[in-house]
Nucleic acid binder design. Sequence first.
DNA 1: ATGGATTCGA
Length: 612
Amino acid sequence: MQQKLVNVLQKCQNVRQIKQTHDQIIVHGLKDCNFIVPKLMSLSSDFISPNYAANIFGCVCTPNVVTYNNLIKCFIGKSHTDAIFSYNRMREAQIMPNSFTFTSLFRCLEFLDDGKCVHGQVMKLGFLSSVFVHNTILDFYSKCGGNLGYVWMVFDEMVERDVISYNTMIGACMNHGEVEFAIRLFEGMPERNTVTWNSVIGGLSKTGNVELARTVFNKMPQKNTVSWNSMVSGYIMVGDMRTAQALFDEVPEKSVVSWTAMVTGYATVGDLESARRIFDQMQGKNVVSWNAMIAGYVNGHMFDQALSVFHNMLVDGNCKPNQVTLISALSACSHLGAHDHGKWIDGYIKKNNVDLSVPLGNGMIDMFAKCGDLPSAWEAFHKMPKKCIITWTTMISGLAVNGHCSKALELFYRMCRDGLKPDDVIFIAVLTACVHGGLLEDGNRVFDLMVKHYEIKPRIEHYGCMVDLLGRAGKLEEAVRFTESMHLQPNAVIWATLLAACKIHGNGELLESLTDKILASEPTNPGYLTLITNISSSIGRWQNALNFRLVARQQGAEKVPGCSAIQIGSCVHEFLAKDTKHAQKKEIYQILGNLNGELKSVYDMPVEYTYS
DNA sequence: ATGGATTCGA
């Protein structure tokens, strides 16, 4: 009976079949069997969830080593805490771990300290003789963010090293940028297999040594698809799409990986047409391929195309969107302000029980905030099971750009009280909130907090916020003094901020002295000339002296006017500042006039437009 | 009776 059920289990292809067999196992009173249960657990973990597998484990009265090992294995790439918990439970149950326990456990671990701890257990219990265990320890130390020293130490201590130990070691050296050491190991090792060669080619490619990778590749005896793909990726990495394409054409057995690499390659050099051409030619697209095309469009700021490909993916139906897909699609929605598409993605996540990972949650918050739907942004924020500093930054920025500036500050202080350490980026968001709300005192306090309490060195963006804050509050001299006290050279943004402050407060004298400073530090930038000219005329300060200085510089320095466009249906409408070319200009300026009136009555701040 | 480690694409 047992053997029969094991055979049935091995044939299971989907959730329904697994659950049916699970029922059979229970009916036959075998839910306690240490022969069947481990197989059921690993299948359930793959097709259903580690949690489901853990529940099956919970029904076993006397689990043995194999069953415990399989429980731990379910948590690989899922939960290091659950894995450690299971290991401790096993020790408490007086079950002696074996080498399989440690290979599984090390693959679950994430943090250096946990690894050291388990490493100690391995030494205490005497499993260092197992090459398997040693190899996973090597791999763990190379991936957990510790330094290469630990990896070398383990490698040197090993009494027996096989080809995988060497391969792991070569990979570790490559990932830490120690190309020389990797090559030395490669040359000194007793035997090499395909993975060895591929690790070297891939490592050299990733570290920008394409030509060296090419010489190794040319010498490699039996190249497989991975070798070819590593080489193609190498040329893509350095932006050499011509060679990448030439090599790609030669690849004997192109895989999805080869095609997808080319899509990414063309997208990253900004050639979205070629990327799309490859993408359309490609057979058997998987989720990574779709993601590459969608992310390519997002990075190229072609957001509507990104959403269109996302839509095609759903219609195509051959692969389900995953976290990465949804994050890219949400980013497109954020940039387009596509609230309806964003809400649809929200619905998709809820309906399909997609777990809200930190980056996905961050994307949801950003999308809702950029679409002006703050209640939904808050909902996403509160529902996230785990948050990171970016989560808080996104929510604070969202509140700030929507005008809820005190709320943004409040949230920031709450985060600090919760004990999370703010970084330089979140301070930009908080200071921006102060600028939007005209909260000068709060801004000063926050800036002080950043510099004195958190000892974060201000970046030019932080200074920019402070200058803006002072300038808008009419403290122009203080703003200028502030720029002089900075430990950084003022950049374009700082100058423009000060000029804007002159405009708001009609300060002509400051405008003159600033003009001298700007012309001295950035004599060739035509943008300022236009800006200064416009401001001086708008505040009625059109003296000859200033005019003369500017005109002298302005010759041949024509500023390219900014242009914006929106798409309605299939027609793209373009607008230039003060242009009067649109067929519906009368209605457009009529609406601008109405908006102006409304803004004036609510905020006492007119929008800028002219109709001639 | 039982299960393990390394290489390419988002």
